[in-house]
Design a protein around this nucleic acid. Structure first.
Length: 811
DNA sequence: CAGTGAGCGAGCTTCCGCTTGACTT
């Protein structure tokens, strides 16, 4: 039996380490934390100096008993969780939960997974650092207090199941404020002037493009300028300046930079990047993907050096160690890099291959020489004694260095026409002819909305959130419907172009698209209302510096200079009274309400606010005798901008549109768009139809079309015991995606090669057996929504089983 | 993806950071 038990955080790591350590060591994984604050209620004993109430979560119970069994068999336990605040706490929770004795355990940590690092760690064991553990407890308790005291306020004041927290609420604030900047933005127009010159006789002929070094504010100014140009018949090159420049490679990937580059270069979402990286990590191809460190092991640097030397030559090698500049970095791991630098590519899905290649290139490039460039700037004189000049610049790469492998992308869209070009052989004093010149009206750009990846970058910059939480945070704020992805078509905008050629000036109007935006983050009405409410009542928590400030205090705790419960006490004594105050201010469910006015028809008040199902309009008040009427806002409408007329119009639906076959016809808008309702059935309206204007005739046409479709839908029925609609009936139907079999509430696709109408019952049953149905039954759908309910059931079952065991006689 | 269109009463929701796997009669 093995005498030594090593516990690490990740199972992939466990596997690797076990190989290094040999047969005297058993290596297990804790799969992260094994204990947490009680899931229900606050989980903190406020009356007892904030004592945390810990429990092993249900899904960790089995693991903990396996760990316990291994501990009981081992002589020595090596707690090898990561060397950071969370890692220290993981070790301590293991120590507490598994009942380790002080003489029985060693605390060790390694920053890279190499044989040397592991043996070095084993030779240098230490004790658990209680101060660091306390810093983690302070972090954990503070986050729980903030989250579990703020969220219920939102349930009462705005809508159920909302949430707030130190990280997510600030993320929403960033997005909301950016949207306000965009709303307030006034774009300004100015004329950009470009010109093309030709060299006059003598020497080698050439052509050169240049731009005026200032923009002209008005059309009059631009016209006047072109007219003055017209009168000049020779231009002189005033200066030619060439300067050497250098570009250095970016640091190897951290979680956040990987997410940004994968988004820009590969179009991956933040969570997609993480799951692909996880696959690469599990198959041993890259190092750990949740890291804030840019550090590379000496092993990796040497391997890169060898690869670069072999592939590109020695002068391309320049090894470097980068240093982390992000706030609050804990650097328990290496940067994200290939495990084996000599593997330039990898196998697997195409996503895995692409991401791997990106990581390989970034790592290799980080150890390559700077690129060397020459930047040449040419100025062309226009008028005597005036500062306005035409300027042309070009760039030549004299040594490509790391650019040979990799260039980091930027978020900024390239400014139009600023691409650097190779310049012809130009000499000072050269005389030029003007070929043509264009003055184009250009508009200043509004601020850019955040993308998932640029939001991550901003959060990291502010020191908010950790590598393991960036992706989940972004999902949370979308799941809560605080923010959503944009899909804005944009509108046409006219701009003016003045063109001078052969002494003539033409004046043209052109159009361009503006305001289009896709997959960027934008606040919803709910997000705006929640954000405004929280920033008003809890400015401290929503402050961009809040996390950085409390992190400083956690650091004091971590070095033993501060008692963690004192710190929490100071915080709570300030925070909690505001919670109480907030609960007592405002009527419930009225936050963010906008009174639009009085409905002229009924004389009742019309207001807009966030309701149980999102933004809505209310007609009447609770105090009225009659119950108020409610209606949800439509897509594209928002609380802040909806007018009373638009609001009143929403109550016109559902709209009666006469009768057909002595039954009522109504038109309305539902979850799936506009529809007409007839005889208890719903028929979706085609895109060009409007429920506010659709006529009885048009509606009847739709009903008949639907009837015809339904008739064609049914190809064949094999009746069951209970007739053709019975539970065991087999139906062959024509659906949107071709013929299919419906049986026992599930659907089975029929292959295109099969003649559906000719199928026998036997053949149908064969298809049912062999085809996998993708249909979710109603039960499954429900269960997916309420997995927690099943979890509970499971627990009850488990407990029953335990009881039985206990009752059973012992051997 | 195979068919849809909320609205009651009771009890529920929620945080951030570590880590993967995703029940069966």
């Amino acid at each position: 039996m093995q005498k030594n038990l090593v516990i690490v955080e990740s199972p992939a790591k466990a596997k690797t380490i076990e190989k290094f350590l040999g047969k005297d060591y058993k290596v297990m994984s804790s799969y992260g934390h094994i204990r947490d604050l009680k899931k229900k209620d606050l989980g903190i004993d406020l009356a007892n100096s904030y004592r945390p109430l810990y429990e092993v979560p249900a899904d960790k119970e089995k693991l903990v008993s396996e760990l316990q069994a291994a501990v009981n068999k081992a002589d020595v336990v090596w707690l090898a969780s990561d060397e950071d605040r969370e890692g220290e706490a993981i070790s301590w929770h293991l120590y507490e939960t598994l009942g380790l004795r002080d003489k029985q355990y060693h605390r060790i940590a390694f920053h890279e997974i190499t044989k040397n690092a592991i043996f070095h760690a084993i030779e240098n064991p230490r004790r658990i650092n209680r101060d660091l553990v306390n810093a983690q407890q302070a972090r954990r308790v503070l986050d729980r207090i903030v989250g579990f005291e703020l969220s219920p306020i939102l349930w009462r004041k705005i809508k159920p199941a909302l949430s707030a927290g130190r990280v997510q609420s600030v993320a929403v604030r960033l997005i909301t404020e950016r949207e306000r900047e965009i709303d307030a933005f006034q774009s300004e127009a100015a004329y950009r002037v470009q010109a093309t010159f030709l060299k006059k006789e003598g020497g080698t002929p050439y052509q050169i493009n240049a731009e005026l070094n200032k923009r002209l504010k008005t059309k009059e100014e631009a016209l006047e300028f072109l007219n003055r140009l017209k009168g000049i018949n020779a231009f002189t090159i005033d200066s030619v300046v060439t300067k050497p420049a250098k570009k250095s490679p970016a640091a190897p990937f951290t979680t956040s930079t990987l997410q940004q580059e994968a988004a820009r270069k590969l179009g991956f979402s933040v969570s997609q990047t993480m799951s692909v990286a996880q696959k690469l990590y599990e198959s041993g191809k890259i190092t750990y993907m949740r890291t804030d460190s840019v550090h590379l092991s000496s092993l990796a640097i040497n391997a890169s050096k060898a690869e670069i030397g072999e592939a590109y030559g020695k002068k391309y090698v320049k090894t470097r160690q980068f240093s982390t500049k992000s706030k609050g970095a804990q650097e328990a791991h290496e940067a994200i890099r290939p495990t084996y630098m000599n593997a330039h590519q990898t196998t697997g899905t195409s996503q895995e291959q692409k991401l791997y290649e990106l990581i390989w290139k970034r790592t290799i490039a980080s150890q390559m020489a700077d690129a060397e460039l020459e930047r040449t700037t040419v100025t062309i004189n226009i008028f005597e004694d005036e500062d306005v000049k035409f300027v042309s610049s070009g760039e030549v790469i004299t040594f490509d260095g790391f650019l040979r492998v990799y260039l980091e992308s930027t978020d900024d869209e390239p400014a139009d026409n600023e691409e650097s070009t190779l310049l012809p052989p130009i000499m000072r004093k050269d005389i030029l002819d003007l070929k043509e010149s264009t003055a184009t009206e250009r508009f200043t750009q509004r601020p850019a909305r955040y993308s998932e990846a640029s939001l991550v970058r901003k959060l990291e910059e502010l020191g908010i959130g950790r590598p393991s939480t960036y992706a989940p945070t972004i999902s949370t704020i979308q799941n809560r419907e605080y923010v959503e992805k944009t899909n804005i078509e944009g509108t046409d905008r006219e701009y003016n172009v003045l063109h001078l050629k052969k002494g003539k000036i033409t004046d043209a109007i052109k159009t361009e698209k503006t305001g289009a935006d896709k997959n960027k983050l934008k606040p919803t009405d709910t997000g705006i209302v929640v954000n405004d409410y929280l920033t008003e009542f809890f400015p401290r928590i929503l402050d961009y510096n809040f996390t950085a400030d409390v992190e400083k205090e956690f650091d004091y705790v971590a070095v033993g200079a501060e008692v963690w419960t004192d710190m929490i006490d100071r915080f709570y004594k300030k925070f909690h009274p505001v919670v109480e105050e907030a609960l007592n201010t405002h009527e419930d469910h009225k936050v963010g309400e906008r009174i639009l006015g009085i409905d002229p028809k009924s004389g009742k008040q019309i207001s807009a606010k966030i309701g149980r199902f999102g933004p809505m309009i209310q007609l009447g008040t609770q105090d009225d005798e009659e119950k108020p009427r409610f209606v949800s806002l439509r897509k594209g409408q928002s609380l802040g901008t909806i007018t009373i007329e638009e609001a009143i119009k929403l109550f016109d639906l559902p709209r009666p549109i006469g009768e057909y076959e002595e039954k009522e016809l109504t038109a309305s808008i539902g979850k799936f768009g506009p529809y007409i309702k007839f005889d208890g059935k719903f028929i979706s309206l085609p895109k060009d139809a409007d429920p506010y204007t659709i006529t009885q005739e048009e509606a009847i046409e739709l009903i008949e079309a639907k009837r015809k479709q339904d008739r064609e839908k049914l190809i064949k029925i094999f009746e069951g015991k209970d007739g053709k609609d019975g539970k065991d009936a087999v139906q062959i139907l024509n659906g949107r995606y071709g013929p299919y079999i419906a049986y026992k509430e599930k659907n089975y696709k029929i292959a295109k090669t099969v003649d559906a109408a000719a199928l026998t019952l036997k053949e149908c049953m064969e298809i049912i057996k062999t085809t996998k149905s993708k249909t979710k039954t109603k039960v499954e759908k429900k269960e997916k929504k309420k997995t927690k309910v099943t979890e509970k059931k499971k627990k009850v079952l488990e407990e029953e089983a335990k009881e039985k065991k206990a009752k059973a006689p012992k051997k």
